[in-house]
């Protein structure tokens, strides 16, 4: 690994990869935190705040390491608060609006079902710094997927209305799942270095997890194979700009302040 980082191109690939991990956690954490105080039942308020808290904690670690790898003196906060939308590298899936509580849960499940195997693979990364972060995050995310899968099952196989809402959420979000498994040169470089798994290698496991949960939830996997993409290379939906306008407000309006 050390030899690999000696070349600038590989450092750029690793930086790119770390931004993708950190930005997924940051943007999803932001979306989840929007529910604070508005969830359908008190236990869900607690669980959502807890999920958001885990994700923001992971953001600090991924973006902290990204700044270190980049070597330009940028901190996790600098990266979170002072980049514009085109510099963000998260999946489109995580920036989509919350919708109803069913859509929020379905988005969480589809993401968690990818996030967990990704982190498990990263825990064996050739880069010990990556492995260390993943080993911490994997414990949190194992709980996230347990909870989101359980709720998808219960609501899918609940009332007619809860079933219809969960199916609608799945149909809406499905075209945003394919992006998780696409590769570019940065992915290939980190995979070749044994830092991260090739994205496509996670597809089968994800499909198995999702198929089993959907079957138990009596939900039907959507037929279309079309995948929206662009988030991982900085081409986002219109929604991300508003997330950043809100999230970055204080840092932008009062630059250089200590908080």
């Amino acid at each position: 690994m050390a030899a690999l980082l000696d070349t600038a191109i590989d450092r750029a690939s690793l930086f790119e990869f770390l931004l993708r991990m950190g930005d997924n956690a940051l943007v999803l954490g932001h979306r989840v935190s929007e529910w604070c105080g508005h969830a359908p039942v008190l236990e869900e308020d607690i669980a959502l705040a807890n999920t958001a808290l885990d994700l923001i904690g992971q953001t600090q670690l991924w973006l902290g390491l990204a700044g270190e790898v980049e070597g330009q003196g940028r901190s996790a906060d600098n990266l979170a608060y002072l980049r514009d939308a085109h510099e963000f590298r998260n999946l489109l899936l995580v920036e989509l609006p919350n919708g109803d509580f069913g859509r929020t849960l379905m988005r969480q499940f589809l993401f968690d079902a990818w996030h967990l195997p990704m982190l498990k693979a990263l825990a064996a990364s050739s880069d010990p710094r990556v492995a260390e972060i993943a080993a911490k995050a994997v414990k949190e995310v194992a709980y996230h997927v347990e909870r989101s899968a359980d709720l998808v099952i219960r609501l899918g196989d609940g009332t007619e209305e809860s079933h219809a809402r969960m199916q609608a959420a799945l149909d809406e979000l499905w075209p945003y799942t394919g992006e998780m498994f696409l590769s570019d040169a940065a992915d290939e470089a980190v995979a070749a270095a044994g830092i991260a798994p090739a994205p496509a290698s996670l597809r089968e496991g994800w499909r198995d997890t999702v198929a089993a949960v959907l079957a138990e939830a009596t939900l039907k996997e959507p037929a279309g194979a079309y995948a929206h993409k662009g988030g991982r290379s900085g081409r986002h939906t219109e929604h991300l700009g508003y997330i950043l306008a809100e999230m970055q407000f204080l840092q932008r309006a009062y630059p250089g302040s200590t908080w």
Partner: peptide
């Protein structure tokens, strides 16, 4: 909750989330 999405640093955001979570727990 009105300021969680606008907290000025990641650390402040995490602390505020933890606090609001505690409050739901107190409830």
């Amino acid at each position: 909750g009105n300021w969680i999405t606008r907290a000025p640093t990641l650390e402040r955001k995490a602390i505020l989330l933890a606090k609001v979570q505690d409050e739901a727990g107190h409830g």
